[in-house]
């Protein structure tokens, strides 16, 4: 069981959260020409690293806020949690 510290609510069990994927992926800017390659990168391509991974979670059974979690994909150690608009 993961224990995730929601920046709004404090330490909660994994059951309260749902996963949202890689948080480093950036959507191409709005109202600008987007090349197929940029769109491909954004929609489909993922690094999926071993080790530190910055990812989105939603505290869906809590405050319902999206948060960022820095977690190790091999050991599941959680290094840091952030509000969705904060940078590491």
């Amino acid at each position: 069981m993961l224990h995730i510290k929601c920046p709004h609510c404090g330490l909660r069990s994994q059951n309260e959260f749902s996963y949202g994927g890689d948080a480093t992926v950036k959507r191409p800017e709005l109202n600008k020409e987007v090349s197929d390659k940029d769109w491909d990168n954004f929609v489909y391509l993922r690094k999926s690293p071993v080790g530190k991974h910055l990812e989105l979670w939603q505290h869906i059974s809590g405050c319902r806020q999206w948060i960022k979690v820095e977690r190790d994909t091999l050991t599941h150690e959680i290094f840091k949690t952030l509000k969705a608009n904060e940078e590491v």
Binding site: Y19, H53, E55, T73, L74
Partner: peptide, 8 residues
């Protein structure tokens, strides 16, 4: 799946 990226 466990539902989050994992190599464990």
């Amino acid at each position: 799946l466990d539902g989050y990226n994992s190599y464990a």
